[in-house]
């Protein structure tokens, strides 16, 4: 059974038909890269998967729960799905440690000592064990993004959604973030990424989903699809980004 199941999902922004019948299944432990030009609907699709964005038709089932934008449902979903954003979105008035401990203590009622231990653990995992008491503004973009990943991991999600998480970073900082993702993938974490990192999609990803004009245009095993694209649109896209 798939962990995430997207069935014939349609989405409109006013008159604009941004998702035109998306079907997608992601199994536990899979690493799926969603690629495509800007405006192809890939970020919208990702944001529909955890209820940040509503959809007008079809169904999305995540970990057995129907996804919707209803607050109660979003809160329930947050136990199973984490999300990391392009713009990090750390809370500027909280230290790195407090950023991470916030959700476990508020939502899961983890006691403070335990939350602290957990926060330290996930920080070590992303290589920032020494930044616990630091405020986000003192960190580089790459470090902030790794804290954001750690913050998501502290909720022990079954699937992590990553929305262009390296796009706002200076090129020399991208590697550290990708390394963390690679390690997560190796540990069996389910990852769904909207990304422009073709090398990462090929080397670490299991599957590639190429979106074009609101539809899944081509999909399949990452290495095969990227080495031998079947449609002219994907061929052209790969030619443009590589």
């Amino acid at each position: 059974m798939s962990l995430v199941s997207v069935r014939d999902v349609h989405k409109y922004f006013g008159d604009l038909h941004v998702l035109k019948g998306i079907d997608l299944d992601v199994k536990a432990g899979e690493v799926v890269s969603i690629i495509g030009r800007s405006g192809s609907g890939k970020s919208t699709l990702l944001r529909c998967m955890n209820g940040l964005e509503s959809y007008d038709q079809g169904a999305i089932i995540l970990d057995g729960m129907e996804v919707s934008t209803d607050e109660f449902q979003v809160r329930k979903l947050s136990q199973s799905v984490g999300m990391v954003f392009q713009s990090f979105n750390l809370f500027p008035h909280l230290t790195v440690g407090e950023n991470i401990m916030l959700a476990p203590t508020l939502i899961k009622k983890t006691n403070k000592a335990e939350a602290k231990k957990l926060a330290q653990e996930v920080l070590e995992k992303v290589g920032l064990g020494d930044k616990f008491g630091q405020y986000p503004e003192k960190l580089s973009g790459g470090q902030q993004q790794r804290v954001a990943i750690a913050r998501s991991l502290a909720m022990k999600p079954k699937v992590l959604l990553c929305d262009e998480i390296t796009s706002a970073l200076d090129p020399e900082l991208v590697g550290d973030v990708l390394k963390v993702l690679e390690q997560l993938a190796a540990e069996g974490m389910t990852l769904i990424l909207v990304t422009h990192e073709m090398n990462f999609a090929r080397d670490v990803g299991d599957r590639v989903v190429f979106m074009h004009q609101g539809k899944v245009h081509e999909t399949g095993d990452a290495k095969t699809v990227l080495a031998d694209p079947q449609t002219p649109e994907l061929r052209q896209f790969i030619g443009a980004v590589l």
Binding site: S78, G82, M83, N89, F91
Partner: peptide
Amino acid sequence: EAARTLGL
């Protein structure tokens, strides 16, 4: 959005 995603 980040806070919503965390379940707050």
